[in-house]
Simulated scan of single mutants.
Amino acid sequence: MGAGRQLWRGGRARLSVDHGWRSTQFTRSTRSTRSTRSRLRVPQDSAPRRRAGGCTGRTHPQTGAPPCRTLAPAYPGFEVEVESLNADTSPIEKVTVPQIVDSLAALVQGLDKPLVLIGHSAGGVFVQLLLDRGLGAAGVAINSAPTEGVAVLPLAQIKSAFPVLKNPANRHRAVGLTFEQWHYAFTNTFPEEESRALYERYAVPASGSIFWDSALATLRPGHQSIYVNYHNGDRPPLLFVSGEKDHLMPPKVQHSNAKHYKSHTVTEVKEYPGMPHLLPAAPGWEAVADGALDWAVAHAR
């Protein structure tokens, strides 16, 4: 599950990466992998809250503060390596949003400290759903997919999602992308050679079910699986981190999502120039990580 792993160990950067509705964990100096999803952070000391700069995802370059404890739980059925998910896609076909969120909620509720919740892409939706339940001390949604009611649909997003949404039968399938499709959606700012290496090592099919449920959520009557109460005044603070060059979840999506929240709780958006959807693996990710976690611990309640 990744519980207790530090983001930095022996000077090597380690982070969790959500590839849309799939993910890996990798170390930049190796090619080892772990199947992971949303990231949960716990300060290693006994204090439930710390000021900005007091707890980071790595040894803080200015303050020298130690890393946070990081939990990277797998989604139900995803407790295997990338190769296994590519060989047997049935876990991807079967998994649902309620299953994922309930499993994450059970983990959070079983811990003795409030957490900073961090999720990328679909993981950003799951962070919002957990916050809506009153869980977490603060949340960070990185290049987040939209929650129910966010109807903005940029052209780049349509092109990125088209391989999954072009066929209604894909709703019950795990849908793989070609390298060209994956490069456009996830790594459009990367050199082709680096992008292809990431694709060949880490890409697995996307959940057609979750893609289609997200696309139809705003059109269906009643509350769907990605519904949040935008008027929930008890929701912990939320930061949207957006990459300027993201094709799959462009900045317009995060700005629109943030504007839907109508309560007095803190909701902010920070956009990073030049960053693609696979922001956690892009050059300069360290500054994004430090900034996001500094914001979270400063606003944590």
Score class of each variant (00 low, 15 high):
Ala141Gln: 08
Ala281Pro: 02
Ile92Ala: 02
Gly274Gln: 12
Pro273Glu: 03
Ile210Leu: 15
Ala258Trp: 10
Leu279Ile: 05
Glu93Gly: 00
Pro67Arg: 11
Ile92Arg: 00
Arg41Thr: 14
Pro61Arg: 12
Phe186Thr: 00
Asp112Arg: 07
Ala52Asp: 04
Arg69Lys: 09
Arg22Lys: 10
Gly233Ser: 13
Val116Phe: 07
Asn229Leu: 05
Asn188Asp: 00
Pro283Tyr: 12
Gly77Phe: 03
Val108Arg: 03
His247Val: 00
Val116Ala: 13
Pro48Arg: 01
Pro250His: 08
Pro146Asp: 07
Asp290Trp: 06
Thr63Lys: 09
Pro73Thr: 00
Arg22Ile: 13
Gly222Arg: 09
Phe240Cys: 04
Met275Ala: 02
Arg12Asn: 14
Val288Trp: 08
Pro168Ile: 07
Ser160Cys: 01
Pro276Val: 04
Tyr202Asn: 15
Ser103Met: 01
Pro283Met: 14
Ala282Arg: 03
Pro221Phe: 05
Val152Thr: 11
Thr89Phe: 08
Leu248His: 02
Gly139Ala: 10
Met249Gln: 12
Val266Gly: 11
Ser121Glu: 03
Arg171His: 06
Val150Ala: 13
Pro168Val: 08
Leu279Arg: 02
His299Glu: 12
Ser144Met: 07
Pro276Phe: 00
Leu293Arg: 01
Leu278His: 04
Lys262Gly: 04
His172Arg: 11
Leu85Cys: 05
Gly123Leu: 08
Tyr184Gln: 01
Val116Glu: 03
Thr59Pro: 14
His299Arg: 14
Val80Arg: 14
Ser16Asp: 12
Thr96Ile: 03
Pro236Glu: 08
Ala106Ile: 12
Arg173Val: 04
Arg220Gln: 15
Pro221Ser: 12
Val150Ile: 15
Ala258Pro: 02
Pro251Lys: 08
Arg34Leu: 15
Arg196Met: 08
Leu15Lys: 11
Thr96Ala: 05
Ala106Pro: 01
Phe211Trp: 10
Gly291Asp: 15
Gln128Lys: 09
Val204Met: 12
Ser35Arg: 08
Val127Tyr: 03
Arg9His: 15
Gly124Glu: 03
Glu180Gly: 01
Ser38Arg: 04
Ser214Val: 14
Pro98Cys: 08
Ala203Cys: 09
Glu244Arg: 05
Ala296Arg: 06
Lys259Pro: 00
Thr178Asp: 00
His264Met: 04
Gly119Pro: 01
